[in-house]
Computed example of a mutant assay.
Amino acid sequence: MKALVDCIHCYLKQAVSCMEMVNIPDERKIEVLYILMDFIKTLDPQASPAYNSSLVLLKTYEIIKNRDPYCYAKKQSNALALELYEDMKKKVFGASDPLYSALKVAVAGNVIDLGIKRDFDIETELSNAFGYGFSIDDYALLKDRIKTAKDIVIAGDNAGEIVFDKILVEVLRQMGKSVYYIVKTEPILNDSTLEDAKEVGMDRIANVVDTGVGLLGIPKNLVSLEVKQLILNADVIISKGQANFESLDEFEEIQANIFYLLKIKCEFLAKKLGFKLGDLVLINGENSKKRNSE
């Protein structure tokens, strides 16, 4: 997915959010934003929004001299999600279709997004996910593919959210599937790293693999060879969140194997794909491409 003019103000919003995490004074924020405006002029407009956002964030970290401004917030998100974990797990495993319920819980966790909007109500999101489900729903196709799959890859997204992904992993393991869970190597926004995976116990139930880079999404030509081959060879990939959606489309040859699971938080993306802002979406990669070309 290529970046458009609509993305530029989001780069700056993310930078502001980042600086607010570590209480940068307003006067300094303005100075940093002016520097970033010049930096944004150098970005490749053909690159994905996730990649350009990463470059702007890393530049911000460099300027404010803080490599992980979301460190404390990520721990808070993990702690909040862990408080809800047991109740959600019981609800999922007590459902008539645990896999479908686990996917709903996993997508509800996607609301924990500290990049731009830092106020979220995870309990309301969980309730809405169970009550209303997906606006675009390729579950029947995913379920059919999972039945014959051996290896399943989950491309993780945020801290906190990773706790709800654990329930999905546990359901898949009960179905006899081998699960790989992808995290970031270095901190970027509030994305999950190996530290988060260990903190919430994901490493005890899944094969946790890091991307080899500290960038949003999974850029095909920048991640480690291990991750690239893992995605290319997996029977099913479940992609969490918008940055993974924006970057995994680079793996054009395996879109039939990818299922995107996310909450639509971007007005531009909503218009581009015919979604509504706030929609919960479970869509196969090939079907997504069809919608994009219409």
Rank of each mutant, 00 (worst) to 15 (best):
R67W: 12
G274M: 13
C266T: 06
L126T: 04
L103R: 01
L282T: 13
L33R: 05
Q242S: 06
G156S: 03
E294C: 15
L172K: 02
I264A: 08
N207S: 13
M21E: 05
G285E: 01
F245C: 13
D97M: 10
V213L: 02
E20G: 05
K89W: 03
E186R: 11
I146L: 06
M202D: 02
I146F: 07
T211F: 01
L261P: 03
N52C: 08
R145F: 07
K41R: 14
K271T: 11
L142K: 04
K272Y: 14
E125T: 10
Y100V: 08
K220T: 05
E267C: 06
E27I: 12
I35S: 03
N284F: 10
M202F: 04
R145P: 06
G241S: 07
A108I: 05
L280P: 01
S127H: 08
E27N: 13
C10R: 05
I258S: 03
F130Y: 12
E20V: 11
G214Q: 03
A47Y: 02
Q229W: 06
L58I: 09
A129D: 05
Y70Q: 05
L172C: 07
D203S: 15
E123V: 15
I136H: 11
I182G: 03
I238E: 04
E250S: 11
D44Y: 11
L168H: 05
E250K: 09
A149T: 13
Y34A: 14
E250R: 07
Q76D: 14
K290V: 15
L58V: 09
L142F: 09
V208A: 01
Y132N: 10
T124Y: 13
D97K: 11
L172T: 00
K263A: 07
I63P: 01
Y11I: 03
D121F: 06
K220V: 06
S96P: 12
K228W: 10
E86F: 07
T60D: 14
I152F: 01
L215S: 00
V22K: 04
G214W: 01
N78V: 00
A108C: 10
